[in-house]
């Protein structure tokens, strides 16, 4: 049984396959009737043990566009509050003949644990500071569409990389697609002991000129004071894409953000609607990529490798 828990679950062929199927679904999403019967009769469980709007909506809509039924279990309604373990919940869902589950969980390793039960294909919708593979896929795909190739391109990932599952999945995928990754942030919020192929910078101004992609991460407000950061002014001076920095930015640069944006913290409002920003495209491709992932995991033959594109 195939799962998508980590970006490492995919080989390069799988990634290309997902991208080519996503391209097909993009076309579907532009139709007047935005629905295909690909997964009719299947049921996807959305197991969200941590609040999420974007990812959940995106998966839910992706499933529906494929005629797949969805059921939602969120923190407030789930029996996990009543003391049931994640495994118990999964077994219950399996007995109810659910075909697949997306899991969002505050603890690293939760999706992997669920996948190890082999009850149904499991998609990691974000596990703590662990991974968020579909976000990485949609980011890379959106950038690829814009830039044609990622080979040799310089990607700077800016902000709280240490606590970011988006970055953890992204670093691996950007690298695999031939891009050169630089992590930019205060050393208090950058992982240490990085693989050799990753560069590090402590100042946005040092990397702005040389970056083809500026990928901003959401900074959590509660981290702004205290032992990681020195307040909003110091952070913005070092790492925010401000109006002033926007003026000196290369014309061919691509600005990305996984959302939701903290306006006036990591990005000034002007940046979001700048012509170099592809933040809205990222949201759109989120649907097509997730449709592709669901199709590949749930079609009759199962798995990634055997399905012809």
């Amino acid at each position: 049984m195939k799962h998508l828990v980590s970006i490492l679950d995919l080989n390069n062929k799988d990634v290309n396959k997902i991208f080519s199927i996503a391209k097909h679904f993009e076309e579907v999403l532009e139709r007047r009737v935005k629905k295909v019967p690909a997964l009719i009769g299947k049921t996807l469980a959305l197991l969200f043990i941590e609040p999420s709007t974007r990812t959940k909506t995106s998966f839910e809509l992706a499933a529906r566009r494929l005629s797949c039924d969805t059921i939602s279990l969120s923190v407030s309604t789930s029996s996990l509050k009543k003391g049931e373990t994640l495994e118990d919940t999964a077994r219950t869902l399996s007995s109810m003949k659910v075909d697949c589950a997306v899991v969002r969980h505050p603890h690293e390793g939760a999706a992997k644990k669920l996948a190890s039960l082999n009850l149904f294909p499991v998609i990691n919708g974000g596990d703590g500071k662990g991974e968020h593979p579909t976000q990485a896929l949609l980011d890379a795909y959106t950038a690829l569409k814009k830039l044609k190739s990622l080979n040799g391109k310089k990607v700077s990932i800016i902000g709280d990389v240490l606590h970011s599952r988006v970055a953890r999945s992204g670093i691996e995928l950007w690298h695999r697609l031939g891009a050169k990754v630089t992590l930019v942030g205060p050393p208090t919020l950058l992982p240490r002991h990085l693989p050799e192929y990753v560069d590090v910078s402590y100042r946005l101004d040092e990397v702005m000129k040389n970056s083809d992609i500026l990928y901003f991460l959401r900074i959590q407000r509660e981290r702004l004071g205290g032992e990681c950061l020195a307040g909003i002014e110091d952070y913005r001076d070092l790492y925010a894409l401000t109006k002033d920095r926007l003026k000196n930015l290369r014309r061919d640069v691509v600005i990305m953000h996984p959302g939701p944006v903290n306006r006036g913290i990591e990005l000034d409002p002007e940046v979001i609607y700048d012509e170099r920003s592809i933040i809205e495209e990222q949201v759109f491709e989120g649907l097509s990529i997730r449709m592709a992932v669901l199709t590949l995991l749930l079609s009759e033959k199962g798995g990634f490798h055997e399905i012809p594109a």
Binding site: C228, L229, A230, D237
Partner: peptide
């Protein structure tokens, strides 16, 4: 307790 605005 907290980091001062060292950069600024």
């Amino acid at each position: 307790k907290e980091i001062a605005e060292l950069n600024l």
